[in-house]
């Protein structure tokens, strides 16, 4: 109350500085406010007193309660519950230390499998078999040692035969699962990588390509075939630096005895059309692309591509090549492309 009075006094001398207008009104307003505050203060004091009384009443009860709680705790301590809880906490801490959030997430994903396995294992039939097996194991000390002959003799028993069949089936499944796991964890070999790379660039291999424009794919494939390096063949290809001597001359162009252009540099597109016509093949866009790939590959490595290399390089299926060039595809393509006979067996 006194503090509010002093602040009220302080404000009074300020009134005239605000201006000479209505100082009496301001004082009246202040007095009204103070009245309201006085009422509120009285209410607060009343409540405080009530609380103090309540606390005084409760203290003895609280003391009793504390005693009881302490007693209970010491009892629990005697029973080992506290140390148990502490150990439990330590275990939790260890679990947290050894398993990261990733492990817990994996566990969560495997929960259904785990539950399925547990359910399957706890089927009455399975438990009956496990029970039978465990009684045998309990009497393991009484078992007579047997050798190979003993095994053969035992295998005549029908029950043993059945058991062996079950074991074999079990082994088969374990082996199957192990194989799947090995496949999953297998590091890709160089050949795998090359194949995957090619497949990525070429798209689906079985796609029908006859007459379909695939310029970018072919260009990529050509680059890929160059990146693969010189072709590995089952026979060492003899790289011919000098053009072969022409066996026959036709319209001023030299051909070898096996019907290929003697000098690959003498090749022109018109000549290719003529050779193709003579081979019974009409060159459309799709066929031209194969011929161009064959020429580019030959220029790159000095060896004419075989069917396998053509399929890998152009992204065409073997079947497509045989459809486009029905008779001896690799040889026909080499003839049209004006390059020597392909080497190798594949």
């Amino acid at each position: 109350m006194e503090t509010t009075q002093t602040s009220a006094q302080k404000t009074e001398p300020r009134a005239p500085t605000n201006g000479s207008t209505l100082p009496n009104d301001a004082a009246a307003l202040m007095a009204k406010r103070m009245e309201v505050m006085e009422e509120q203060l009285a209410y607060l004091v009343k409540r405080q007193r009530a609380q103090e009384e309540l606390f005084a009443d409760l203290t003895p009860i609280g003391k009793d309660l504390l005693n009881v709680v302490t007693e209970r705790f010491s009892e629990l301590e005697k029973e080992g519950a506290i140390s148990f809880a502490q150990e439990l906490l330590a275990v939790t801490r260890k679990v947290v230390q050894h398993y990261g959030p990733e492990d817990v997430r994996q566990f969560g994903n495997a929960v259904v499998t785990i539950l399925d396995t547990v359910r399957a294992l706890t089927q009455p039939e399975v438990l009956a078999i496990a029970g039978q097996a465990s009684t045998v194991l309990q009497n393991a000390d009484q078992a007579e040692p047997i050798g190979i002959m003993g095994m053969v003799r035992a295998s005549r028993n029908e029950d043993v035969q059945k058991g062996m069949a079950v074991m074999m089936e079990l082994l088969k499944h374990v082996g199957h699962a192990a194989k799947a796991m090995a496949e999953q964890r297998r590091e890709p070999t160089g050949a795998d990588k090359r194949k995957a790379d090619l497949a990525k660039r070429l798209g689906p291999k079985k796609k029908k390509v006859l007459g379909v424009e695939r310029p970018q794919v072919i260009e990529d494939a050509r680059q890929e075939a160059r990146d693969l390096g010189p072709p590995v063949l089952c026979a060492d290809p003899a790289v011919k630096e000098e053009p072969e001597a022409a066996a026959t001359m036709l319209d001023g162009v030299g051909f070898t005895a096996d019907g290929h252009l003697a000098n690959p540099k003498a090749w022109t597109r018109d000549l290719a059309l003529n050779i193709a016509h003579a081979q019974g093949v009409e060159l459309d866009d799709a066929r031209w692309k194969v011929v161009e790939f064959a020429r580019a590959d030959f220029e790159e490595h000095g060896v004419s591509p075989n069917v396998r290399r053509l399929t890998l390089g152009t992204g065409l299926a073997t079947r497509d090549l045989y459809t486009m060039f029905p008779k001896a595809p690799a040889r026909t393509i080499a003839k049209i492309a004006g390059i020597p006979k392909p080497a190798g067996c594949i």
Binding site: N306, V307, Y322, K327, A328, P329, A330, R331, C345, I346
Partner: peptide, 11 residues
């Protein structure tokens, strides 16, 4: 297999 393949490649 290789002989058959070589045959097909030779028409």
């Amino acid at each position: 297999l290789i002989l058959a393949n070589a045959a097909r490649q030779s028409g």
